[in-house]
Design a protein around this nucleic acid. Structure first.
Lengths: 137, 137
DNA sequence: CACGATTTGTTCGTATGTATT
DNA sequence: GAATACATACGAACAAATCGT
């Protein structure tokens, strides 16, 4: 396939690798639930260091495109049920990357933003960004 | 101060360093706009490799707490005006980390999630997560 | 159950490039 | 031009968790 590396020296290699993998995912070449090549095989296939490969994978993780499971491998994210949250009048929504406490509390994946809904009463709800859609009601 | 390193060997060092810096920022010890110690000085102060220091800084960047300016330094994020977006009935909101196209399009900072508002008509608006609050209207 | 193979996580060192001061 | 400071990228090693034999 595309084993040989022809990377543009003007762009960070990890970005270009991320671009290729993202394209492969969007085109369906790498289907949801399917396994992404291991870090080792990617280093060999493209002739890159593991650091560079990991930097690319980290980017895709942060975009919610892949899920990494320690000791098992990396997989294209399966479409998950998206929880729907109805937003009442005056309720507020903010999103950001979580701190470690929030990651635990809302069971977020590495690189997944948290969506915080503050109700008019003052109570706060947190959701993993990759699994929630907020709808005005 | 806290120059000596007493890191818990059971937790990734970069996470612990990130915790300390986050605490310093939240407590005001490092005030908005103020400079964060350079990578080099952090490696020396805590006796860590630069990679470990960078991993910690990358985490804080992803949380929107700091802004890294190449060749200039790292700074505590200044509070920015938050744009308020009113969400109409049926409008939808999703958040995730952007791909490179979206980063350019919506002028997002490194590590800043994008908030996408889809109006009932089908049009889509994108905002930087660190500068927007969505309010139900 | 134990052991080895696989795979990701963390951490060190080193070198070079690029932009600012 | 020199010094400073972040960005990228190589290599190497060990830890930790999972899986098949």
């Amino acid at each position: 396939m595309n084993s040989e590396s022809d990377f543009d020296p003007d762009v960070a290699t990890w970005k270009q690798l991320a671009d290729r993998l993202r394209q492969a995912i969007r085109s369906g070449e790498l289907a949801p639930g399917q396994r992404v090549p291991t870090e080792l095989s990617l280093t060999q296939e493209y002739g890159l260091s593991r650091l560079t490969v990991r930097r690319a994978l980290q980017q895709l993780r942060s975009e919610g495109l892949i899920v990494v499971v320690r000791s098992r491998g990396t997989f294209v994210r399966s479409e998950r049920e998206r929880v729907v949250v109805i937003l009442g009048k005056g309720d507020q929504v903010q999103a950001r990357m979580p701190d470690p406490d929030e990651r635990r509390k809302y069971r977020l994946q590495e690189g997944e933003p948290v969506v915080l809904v503050t109700r008019t009463g003052g109570s706060v709800e947190g959701y993993g960004a990759h699994g929630v859609t907020v709808v005005g009601g």
